[in-house]
């Protein structure tokens, strides 16, 4: 059987070209003979696999030409027809880790090839690899190379052969949110007792499932007297004055808008529109009340069903907006509404 084909990506330092002063070294492909840590990988592969090409790129060069260089890496890998691609390991080198993670994710997405890299868990590059590349856990310096290769090489072989990859704790990669089953040596009850003894003694222990960070909030009491309540409208549907004066982004918004509807009894095509890029905007643009029901609220206000419609409304775009930003906007909007004497909120989403 012929050997499995491996492509290896390393930076200028590990290619023994130079340190920081050579970080602008442009991307280069060396076919054949392994370079730097590639030698250790070749040894670990034995007769099973060989490195058919090494991509070398300076860390600064990559980070100054991210898109272009990533594209080049994908092209180079494609030409070599590998079974698996190895990046680094990058240990705790931030820019190197970022390059490894970014390229690994791109190769995974565009060529559908298995990819493996190695990093110190705090390396910012870990995040770029997400659930696309297996990131083997390394220590924070290159002194850990032997160990890193010992873990990465067999994992790369498994991936190249499309074999079943075990759980993160068995294979030594960083868990990025995908749960994988495996058989432990001890039954669950015994592990629970051991964990309890450690917890009692104040010794470190590792939970088998870290709690996700989604939380719940206690429901606030209901509005008692609607006829005297001040109600505010908030939307993640991107409704804003015509022309989008604050340039709220159509996706992954970095800000929210606060606009007056004082004296406005109906949102019309001439005065308002949506900034949202995640849905067909024609209906909302034609009649923005379809997203932000100002017309109905004014009617209810006139009829005395509600006390008052708050004269300001808040808007943002819920399209691909990071949870952390949405949280920040929510907290700020809440603060402003509360200090304006608002009693309750209708939040509409598209």
């Amino acid at each position: 059987m012929s050997k499995l084909r491996v492509v290896h990506y390393i930076n200028q330092f590990f290619a023994q070209i130079g340190g920081e002063e050579k970080a602008d070294y442009p991307i280069e492909l060396r076919e054949g003979t392994p370079v730097g840590p590639g030698l250790a990988f070749t040894q670990a592969f034995g007769e099973d696999a060989e490195i058919v090409g090494t991509i070398i790129c300076g860390d600064s060069y990559f980070n100054e030409n991210i898109e272009e260089t990533t594209k080049k890496v994908v092209e180079m890998v494609k030409g070599l027809k590998p079974d698996v691609v190895i990046f680094g390991p990058a240990f705790n080198a931030g820019r190197y880790g970022f390059a490894c993670g970014t390229c690994a994710a791109a190769v995974h997405d565009e060529l559908e090839l298995p990819v493996v890299t190695g990093m110190y868990p705090e390396n910012p590059g870990v995040d770029t690899a997400k659930d696309k590349a297996y990131v083997v856990v390394t220590k924070n310096s290159a002194a850990d190379m032997r160990h890193a290769v010992k873990v990465m090489a067999p994992l790369a072989l498994k991936l190249a052969r499309h074999e079943h990859v075990g759980a993160s704790c068995e294979e030594g990669y960083i868990n990025q949110g995908i749960r994988v089953n495996f058989f432990e040596k001890k039954r669950g009850s015994e592990r629970a007792v051991e964990m309890l003894l450690k917890k009692i003694a104040g010794k470190p222990y590792e939970t088998e499932y870290p709690m996700p960070s989604f939380d719940r909030v206690e429901p606030m009491p209901a509005v008692k007297d609607l006829a005297h309540a001040k109600i505010a409208l908030v939307t993640s549907g991107g409704i804003c004055p015509k022309g989008n004066p604050d340039h709220i982004e159509s996706s992954n918004a970095t800000k929210f808008g606060e606009y007056s509807i004082e004296g406005v009894t109906d949102l019309t095509e001439e005065t308002f529109e949506t900034a949202h890029g995640g849905y067909d905007p024609s209906y909302a643009n034609e009649d923005p009340d379809r997203v932000l029901p100002v017309d109905i609220m004014r009617d209810l206000e006139k009829e005395g069903v509600i006390g008052k419609l708050h004269e300001l409304f808040y808007t943002t775009v819920g399209n691909g907006t990071a949870v952390a930003s949405a949280k920040k906007y929510g907290a700020e909007i809440g603060k402003r509404l509360l200090s304006a004497g608002v009693n309750a909120v209708i939040l509409t989403s598209t």
Binding site: R191, L196, T207, P212
Partner: peptide, 23 residues
């Protein structure tokens, strides 16, 4: 089936020592 969803329907930071019997 892909192991990517929220494992439990509820969560709290007090649950910092958990033994799981698998997915």
């Amino acid at each position: 089936r892909d192991g990517k969803s929220q494992s439990l329907a509820d969560a709290d930071k007090a649950a910092d020592a958990l033994v799981t019997a698998g997915n």
